[in-house]
Design a protein around this nucleic acid. Structure first.
Length: 309
DNA sequence: CTAGGATCCTGTCAGC
DNA sequence: TGCTGACAGGATCCTA
């Protein structure tokens, strides 16, 4: 489920294997999955831009890798039996490679890096290092939650005031790094219903949402995202890595960790969305005249979140 | 400009 | 068992 925490996990984990090692050759098993011309050279650094990974070589060339929905990176060491696997969890993590889903194979002087991708949405792209920031995807990326200024975020919510808040936070040009899982998790942690129109959030709520997005992703990064270690239990059975940190995602029908209400799955802008119907309520659906009006009247019996900021 | 839906592709799973 | 349709962690492109 390559969202930011997983890509960051890969960046850190893969670095231990390939930094200062040489990329020797490339096998392209699916034309669509490799953009540009294969390159060779010694790995200098691995960087991350949102959900994109960039491997810099020492000759001013780089590989940009985006896993999209189902991409995986699996490194097999030739020196020992070590395997490092991360990305979209599947049995590929433990099976023999290459297999049917292997799209690109990168040969290093100390092992083999497999790029697997069931749905072929992801890609590996060769690019001159200095042009990374000019890449059409990377140049549009918004800052990550911990770098966003509340004022800027709030202003963007106003610009997309009629869109559901979930759609807005999935937009990488507004806030970078959230995918379907962490969008649901962040909204749950903020007690905000995903269908709320972005323009109805108060500045206080926007601030909470930023903080929760930060928190959700940092918890996930700290716990290592979806690595092989977490996916495969000690006894070899398949584990559910989501159990570690998901409070609503994929927990349809299970009790809310806060109030015990059953988690529901709904659809927001075409994406499966998980909510606790008790903790995340839409502000009064039918009986209020309009969203504009109800945001002016402070309906909350608690201390106002509306006055000055 | 924004908002919404279709689309890229393959695999899996529920229902008949 | 075999078929069909819905759906899947992302992002872009097209339409209104």
């Amino acid at each position: 489920m390559p969202e930011l925490p997983e890509v960051e996990t890969i960046r850190r984990g893969l670095g231990k294997f390939i930094i200062s090692h040489r990329l020797i050759s490339t096998e392209i098993l699916c034309e669509k999955s490799f953009i540009g011309t294969p390159i060779v050279g010694k790995v200098k650094a691995i960087r991350r831009f949102g959900k994109a990974l960039v491997i810099d070589l020492n000759n001013c060339q780089s590989l940009m890798i985006h896993l999209r929905m189902t991409g995986q990176l699996i490194f097999d060491s030739t020196q020992n039996t070590d395997r490092y696997a991360a990305g979209h969890p599947s049995d590929n993590f433990t099976s023999t490679l290459p297999n049917k889903q292997t799209r690109v194979i990168l040969h290093f002087d100390n092992g083999t890096l497999y790029f697997n991708d069931q749905r072929k949405f992801g890609f590996v792209k060769s690019i001159t290092t200095k042009d990374i920031e000019k890449d059409s995807f990377i140049k549009k990326l918004a800052p990550e939650p911990w770098d966003i200024k509340l004022e800027d975020f709030y202003e963007k919510l106003q610009r997309h005031k009629n869109s559901p808040i979930k759609t807005v936070i999935l937009d990488q040009t507004i806030i970078c790094g959230l995918g379907n899982i962490y969008a649901d998790e962040s909204l749950f942690m903020s007690n905000i219903h995903p269908m709320r129109k972005a323009g109805t959030l108060t500045k206080t709520e926007a601030n909470i949402l930023l903080n929760m997005a930060d928190k959700a992703m940092n918890i996930a990064i700290a716990s290592g995202g979806s690595t092989m270690k977490d996916y495969v239990k000690a006894d070899g059975t398949r584990g559910d890595y989501l159990d570690k940190f998901a409070q609503v995602f994929n927990r349809t029908g299970k009790p809310c960790v806060v109030c015990g209400t059953k988690i529901e799955k709904i659809k927001v802008a075409g994406r499966g969305t998980h909510i606790c119907p008790h903790c995340q309520q839409l502000p009064q659906s039918k009986f209020q005249p309009s969203a504009e009006l109800s945001s002016e009247i402070n309906l909350s019996p608690h201390k106002g979140a509306s006055k000055n900021a």
